[in-house]
């Protein structure tokens, strides 16, 4: 708690002047949130945000990359990127056992992931000015978690962009995501391959600038 507090307080002091918007990257586990956060951070700051993995719940604590300056059309936008743990209603360590993980590690990972979801939900309430909602375009977007989170975001009147990630994969369907959330702008991309990142940054500047 003390650590978090001091981090938060130093952040707020550091950026009190510029007041960058805090943009939370939300979405279900394994949608590519960290890959996207890393892509954005590398493109504009040269650093990464955190490790990426095929194993779900690789990100178990929210990670920030502060003061990412995105330049578009002669002007610049400052944002803090908050990469959050994948939000889900169930965490089961047996899921991790399939990824060659020892049971003890799997259980610990499961517990940390659960804490991470709790933290992510809390930050959504208190701590973000806008949301990038990342979905895996190869999976069905009509899930309870997606519907609930989008609903919460809407109720908060937060600006939200929906990113249809993984369009480099064959069975990706951007239209399915557009159909699921027609009230929001859906941007197709591949964070891993860097496909369509220009439009991504245009939209970020437009929505969160």
């Amino acid at each position: 708690m003390g650590l978090l507090t001091s981090i938060r307080s130093s952040i707020s002091k550091l950026f009190a002047a510029s007041e960058p918007r805090r943009i939370g990257i939300y979405g279900p586990p394994n949608a590519g949130k960290t890959t996207l956060a890393n892509r954005i951070a590398r493109d504009w700051t040269g650093d990464a945000v955190g490790p990426e993995s095929h194993v779900p719940h690789e990100t178990r604590r929210a990670r920030r990359k502060e003061n990412v300056e995105i330049k578009r059309n002669g002007s610049s936008v400052n944002i803090d990127i908050v990469d959050t743990p994948g939000v889900t209603t169930k965490v089961d360590y047996t899921e991790f056992l399939e990824h060659d993980m020892a049971e003890d590690d799997a259980i610990r990972r499961s517990r940390e992931a659960t804490e991470g979801v709790a933290e992510a939900m809390h930050w959504l309430r208190e701590d973000v000015d806008g949301v990038i909602y990342v979905l895996d375009a190869t999976t069905d977007p009509f899930t309870q978690v997606n519907t609930m989170l989008i609903g919460i975001i809407e109720s908060q009147d937060l600006p939200v962009l929906i990113f249809a990630n993984k369009i480099d994969l064959e069975d990706a369907s951007v239209q399915r995501i557009r159909n699921a959330f027609p009230q929001h702008e859906t941007v197709p991309l591949s964070a891993l391959e860097g496909d369509n990142m220009d439009e991504v940054y245009d939209k970020i500047a437009e929505y969160f600038g």
Binding site: T89, D92, A106, S110, E115, A118, L124, R125, M148, I152
Partner: peptide, 28 residues
């Protein structure tokens, strides 16, 4: 219940509860 512990390593989360609460969980 915002987090139901089914057994060690297995959890069910009530997202709305987690979202609605002012306090938040930092360690299980």
């Amino acid at each position: 219940e915002s987090i139901k512990i089914l057994e060690p390593g297995q959890y069910e989360l009530n997202l709305m509860e987690l979202y609605d609460r002012e306090e938040y969980i930092i360690a299980l």
